[in-house]
Design a protein around this nucleic acid. Structure first.
Lengths: 136, 136
DNA sequence: CTTGACCTTGACATGATGGGAAGGTGCACG
DNA sequence: CGTGCACCTTCCCATCATGTCAAGGTCAAG
């Protein structure tokens, strides 16, 4: 199986498959006599695994650990769960920061006419740094 | 005022001040005879503006627009509000995606023993790609 | 044999920031 | 006056995951 077919089958672009090989996330694929990379069912499983983990937002480093655990039949599920929990915590923290920013901006926007006049609390806040509470 | 003092006063690192100058976000600072950058009150205001905008998650491109509007006394507040609204929409979309991932992962984690046994629904999901609903 | 689709490697870009090296400057203290 | 230290300068490289582009080799069908 060619890299293009493997890419289509797994949803990982050919570019990324080569990249993952280069950084050692996956083993170097076999080669035909002319140098084309060759992929078998096992490789496809690995690539699909990676794609699903990426879809869940795991970093390459985390996926490296998850792959090792996946291939370790004596793994402890606690190790997997811990990686997932840390990732969830990171995502929740990101959400919290986003929520804060959204809240502040929506508050400022609510007090902005949004018409042709130049007065704008959003710019005022950015310029003077007056605390949100003081804006009202 | 030196770049280091300006950095401390505004919360923008010296490194980033130079970077912002290089990409044309701010005007090139004046120089002393020996080549040191010199900053005045106006420059400090601009840098503080930028830092507050970054704190609210605006991209450099958006800040470029906001700076232009800020310095345009004939601006329409609607233009500012539109930039802010687009940014809020982007952040909310990111939150939505994060929430989806968190939801899926928490669901899988809830069914993972998290002990020394190797069975793990998280790995199973990643390996087989079975839909979340089918997992129960 | 030609054509077109695919493969190869390699270099470069993103966006915002950090790190570090190599060398010049300013200032305070002895 | 000299020395040391903290700061400044420029330039290059790294992050993270992905994309784009270019130049050249390969394969299969017509």
């Amino acid at each position: 199986m060619n890299i293009g077919e493997a890419a289509e089958a797994t949803g990982v672009t050919a570019k990324m498959i080569r990249h993952y090989e280069q950084i050692g996330l996956i083993r170097a694929a076999g080669r035909t006599g002319s140098g084309y990379r060759v992929y078998g069912p096992k490789d496809l499983s690995t690539l699909s695994f990676i794609r699903r983990a990426r879809d869940l937002g795991f970093s390459i480093a985390q996926i490296r650990d998850l792959l090792a655990l996946w291939q370790d039949r004596a793994r402890a599920s606690g190790d997997v769960k811990r990686i997932a929990s840390e990732h969830v915590a990171e995502m929740k923290e990101k959400m919290r920061l986003l929520q804060e920013m959204v809240h502040t901006l929506e508050h400022l926007s609510a007090h902005c006419h949004g018409d042709d006049r130049p007065d704008c609390p959003i710019l005022e806040q950015l310029a003077t740094g007056m605390a949100e509470e003081k804006c009202c």
